[in-house]
Design a protein around this nucleic acid. Structure first.
Lengths: 210, 210
DNA sequence: GTCTATAGGGGGATAGAC
DNA sequence: GTCTATCCCCCTATAGAC
C-alpha cells in the first residue's frame, strides 16, 4: 500500500469534494475571477456535476460564503460570552483562537473583505450580528473598565479595530509582505505564533496610553 | 448658470476621463468583476474609445495599478528618508499622510490587497522596493533604538505590520464595520482623524511593552 | 450519479463609416 | 477622434445518453 502526501480521498462524497474545491478556488481568486471549470478540475470531477449538485456558481458561492462567515464568527462566539473570565483573559483566548484559525487558512480575511466589498448589504441580510457584539459579556466588560477608569475614554471603534486589525491584518498583508521582504512563510508563521502573546499585552498598554 | 454638485468636466481630455472612470470602477469592483462597458459608461464615452486609447482592459488596468502603487509609496517616500527628524516625528508624519490619503480614497488598500493576491509576482517585477525600506533612514533609526535598548528586541516584521495595519486596516474593514455596527461615515472619518495622533502614541508604548 | 455535447449569453475587441 | 455594428471567444448552464 502506497502512502502519498496528498492522498486521493475517496472517502468523501462528490458533493463535499466540490465544496472543498470551491473553497480553495474562491478563496484564492474571488468569485468573479473563478471559473466553474477551475472548481471542477480542482475537485477532479466533471463540470456538469457542479450544476447537478449546486444548481449554479452563485448558489455554490453563497454556501461557501455563509459557512466561512459562520466559522469566522463562531470561533470566538463562546469566548466572548464567558461569564467567569476577565477581559484580559478573553483577549488572550480571542487572539489565540483567531491566529490558530488563520494559520490554517490564511486566505479567509482577504476573501471576506473582497467579497463583502462587492455586496455589503448582503452581509447584514444574512448575518444580522450587530447587536450580538454590543450585547456580549466581552463588550460589557470593556465598558465597565471605562467606568472604573482603568482604561482611557475613547470611541469603542478604536478598540475593536485594533483588536481585529492586529490579529487579522498580517494575514491580509501576507502576500505583499512575503513578496516584498522575502521573508519565508515559516518565519511569518513563527511571528504569528508570537503575536498570540504579544497582542493582548499590546492592547492593554494601548488602552491605558493617553 | 447652474452650479451642480458634480459638474461635468469638459476641461479634461478623453484619455484622462477614461482613466478616472477606470480608477473608480476598478477600485470598487476589482479587475475581474469590472466590465469595460462599466468604465465606458462611468466615463460617459463610447466603448470603442477605451480600446482606441488603451488597446485593452488589461493595459488600462496595469496603468491604474502602477499609478496607484506609486502614489501609495510616494506619499511617505520623502518622510522616510529625512535625516533631521526623529523616529517618533516620522511616525507622526507617516500616520498623518497616509490617513489623509485614505480619507480621500478609502478603497485603495482593498484594491491593492485583492489585486496583489491575484498576481503577487507582478508586484516585485514592477515594484522592486524591498531594499528601499531596509535602506531607509527610518528603518535605520528603528534599529538604532533597538541597540540603545530604548525598545524591546523583536522581529521588525511586528513593527512594520503594526504600523501599516493600525493605519490601513480600518479602511479595509470599513464596509464591514459600517454595515454591521451602523456607524455613519462621518463618525468613522472623525475616528480616523483621531488616529493620526493616537497611532504614534500606541506604537511607542507597544514597542516598549514586554 | 456521472458523463458528452451543445445551447445560450455576455463581454472584450475591432472594422469601418463619419 | 468618435461613433455604430458586429465578430468571436469564453464561460455558465442544461439536455440527454449511459
Amino acid at each position: 500500500m502506497t502512502v502519498s502526501k496528498e492522498p486521493k480521498r475517496t472517502d468523501i462524497s462528490t458533493e463535499e469534494k466540490i465544496k472543498e474545491a470551491a473553497r480553495v478556488v474562491f478563496f484564492k481568486k474571488g468569485f468573479a475571477a473563478t471559473r466553474t471549470r477551475d472548481i471542477a478540475e480542482e475537485a477532479g470531477i466533471n463540470l456538469a456535476l457542479l450544476n447537478y449538485y449546486f444548481r449554479s456558481k452563485a448558489k455554490l458561492f453563497e454556501i461557501i460564503m455563509i459557512e466561512t462567515l459562520t466559522r469566522f464568527v463562531n470561533s470566538i462566539q463562546t469566548v466572548v460570552n464567558e461569564e467567569n473570565t476577565t477581559l484580559e483573559e478573553k483577549l488572550v483566548k480571542i487572539a489565540s483562537r483567531y491566529i490558530d484559525l488563520l494559520l490554517e487558512e490564511s486566505e479567509i480575511p482577504t476573501f471576506l473583505v473582497t467579497e463583502i466589498r462587492s455586496n455589503p448589504a448582503g452581509l447584514k441580510a444574512k448575518f444580522p450580528m450587530g447587536q450580538t457584539i454590543i450585547n456580549s459579556v466581552f463588550f460589557k466588560q470593556y465598558q465597565e473598565a471605562h467606568k472604573q477608569g482603568k482604561i482611557v475614554e475613547r470611541h469603542p471603534i478604536h478598540f475593536m479595530m485594533n483588536l481585529i486589525g492586529l490579529i487579522v491584518f498580517p494575514f491580509i498583508a501576507k502576500p505583499m509582505l512575503l513578496e516584498v521582504s522575502g521573508v519565508p512563510t515559516s518565519e511569518f508563521n513563527k511571528a504569528m505564533e508570537e503575536r498570540k502573546k504579544l497582542i493582548p499585552i499590546w492592547l492593554k498598554v494601548m488602552m491605558e496610553a493617553k
